[in-house]
Simulated scan of single mutants.
Amino acid sequence: MTNNLVEQKIIETIARLSNPESYKLVCHKHMQGEPLPSNKNLTRVIELVREILFPGYFGSTTLKSSITPHYMGVYVDELLELLTGEILAGLCFECTDESSNKIEKHKEGAQEKAVSFIEFLPEIRRQLVTDVEATFLNDPAAKNFGEVIFSYPGIRAITNYRIAHKLLELDVPLIPRFITEMAHSETGIDIHPRAQIGESFTIDHGTGVVIGSTCIIGKNVKIYQGVTLGAKSFPLDKDGNPIKGIPRHPILEDNVVIYAGATILGRITIGENSIIGGNVWVTNTLPANSKVVQKRPKDVPFTDGAGI
């Protein structure tokens, strides 16, 4: 291929890529100097929050009582600056006001939301303590709390979820979804930040778990890998598009256990103390103390697993 031909092909490709019709649905127009959300900064935000919530496990936090306030102060100062910037970026991203003072208009609100989030960190820690304890108690293979905090993907995903959920409650746009999708990429666990999840929540193994945006999960619930808490159908508007924002995912009451591969769909309720077996499909409300398992074929003898 001659140099002239290479140059011609490159020029033609640049022209096609520059055609506004080709990118009108995937282009975000923003003012010069307007901040955009940063994966790098949000990764650091999550690192900082973990260092604050689990002192002694992440970063260089010491457990000496006389020095801990110093480390906490350093982490919180950095968190306030970074989180304020990312919240500002999210507010600007979704703001349709293109006036010249758009950034200034959102700065104070961004800082207020960041401060409110930081004030809530002790409560997030309390919630996560219950999750860590429940995970440890529910897993015979877990040797100690440290192993759970350091290495269990369920705790990593639940931590990101609880952070993102609070930010969503503070009306922070875009950023909460970034945070839960970061955990999704790392762990294979997909929890929508809008879901409502009670304390002492356990996700065992975790890969392939999906929890939809309008799910409500009570206290002391345990789910295994491959569980889907999804929507059965999507009501359509007059143009044939799914109607957004309506409750369409399951409600799990307290003390429910759902085993691997189960699929629970629609706005149904699984009553407290119920057990859902592996690889079953549930689309109807179940009363408290229910037990749903796959039907065993008559020609397959029962075994208690001895010798396997």
Rank of each mutant, 00 (worst) to 15 (best):
M1T: 11
T2M: 13
T2R: 11
N4Y: 12
E7D: 08
Q8L: 15
K9E: 03
K9C: 11
K9T: 06
I10C: 01
I11M: 10
I11Y: 15
S18F: 04
P20N: 11
P20I: 04
H30K: 00
P35L: 03
L36I: 10
P37L: 06
N39G: 10
L42R: 12
V45F: 09
V49Y: 04
R50H: 11
L53T: 01
L53I: 11
F54W: 09
F54K: 10
P55A: 08
G56H: 09
K64P: 06
S65W: 15
S66K: 15
Y71G: 03
E81K: 08
T84C: 10
E86Q: 15
I87K: 14
A89V: 00
G90P: 01
L91H: 01
F93M: 09
C95Q: 07
T96G: 15
E98D: 02
K102H: 13
K102S: 04
E104L: 11
E104T: 02
K105H: 14
K105V: 00
H106F: 07
F117L: 06
F120C: 10
E123C: 06
E123A: 13
R125S: 07
V129N: 13
V129E: 04
T130P: 02
D131K: 04
D139P: 07
A142H: 05
N144H: 01
F145L: 13
F145I: 10
F150K: 12
Y152M: 09
G154A: 06
I155E: 00
R156A: 11
A157I: 01
A157K: 11
Y161N: 12
R162D: 03
R162K: 05
R162E: 08
I163Q: 02
H165P: 01
H165K: 12
K166P: 05
E169G: 13
I175Q: 14
I179W: 03
S185E: 13
I189F: 01
I191K: 12
I197G: 04
G198Y: 01
S200V: 07
I203D: 02
V209P: 09
V210Y: 06
S213Y: 03
I223F: 03
Y224L: 09
L229H: 00
L229K: 00
G230C: 08
G230M: 07
G230L: 11
A231P: 00
K232E: 08
D237F: 12
G240P: 04
G240R: 06
P242A: 10
I246H: 08
P247M: 04
L252W: 02
L252S: 00
V257G: 01
A260K: 08
A262W: 11
G266S: 03
G278K: 11
V280A: 08
W281K: 00
N284Q: 15
V292L: 11
Q294A: 14
P297I: 14
K298M: 12
D299R: 08
P301S: 06
